[in-house]
Design a protein around this nucleic acid. Sequence first.
DNA 1: ATGACGATTTACT
DNA 2: GTAAATCGTCATA
Length: 234
Amino acid sequence: MREAGTKAPRHAGTKGKRLPRSFFAAGPEALAPALLGQRLVRILPDGTRLAGLIVETEAYLGVEDRAAHSFGGRRTQRVKSMYQRPGTAYVYFTYGMHYCFNVVCGAVDEPVAVLIRALEPTEGLEAMRAARAGRPGKGGMVAARRDPARVVRDGELCSGPAKLCRAMSIDRSLDGADLVKDDRFFIETGRSADLEPRMIGRARRIGVDYAGDWARRELRWFVRGNPNVSRPPR
DNA sequence: ATGACGATTTACT
DNA sequence: GTAAATCGTCATA
């Protein structure tokens, strides 16, 4: 994690300790800010290690949260991962072309989670650029709009929930993965200790205007001044 | 079986 | 700022 204005992270490439299940069991409002600065790691089938520090998260509070997929106790095929153990990955497909990734953080049958909205990329940037240059999601953009040669600036590589999934090759195959045990997908201790409270911002969640009062609640946390944050508040 | 919509991103005015 | 892309999911019938 770096403050605005400083150079590349000194500890890029550093491997941390894997976060234990007890860390993930904190519940969404505690886990969302606690995940800031932690390192999300993805090992590709060919062994390439991709990683980034988490710089933006959102809490989804479950059955009473109108913005949550589990609102009202919905227990559909799509959201089944949200009802699993803390530390489970909930990956869903949306808008016909994008994936988003959440960390489940409640007891079994308590469908709460934290959406990972942005990362500061630290390892495997080349592979990320290649993944982001092509077409998104499943079917992906029409021919007229896809541009395999398009250049994605580093600050835009993982600056959104679907962008980071694209950059890190996170798709449906990782839905339900156990982040505590899985060897392709996990979270390590990063540089959260460097984050003073004043460096953490809080704001409304993005893209949930349909959720009435729940749209107004400040359930989004982000690292102030970090260029990878998807939508820095005013 | 059908229709409306989405925890988004992108290009364009 | 607006609109298009694109299809699985969900509610309704």
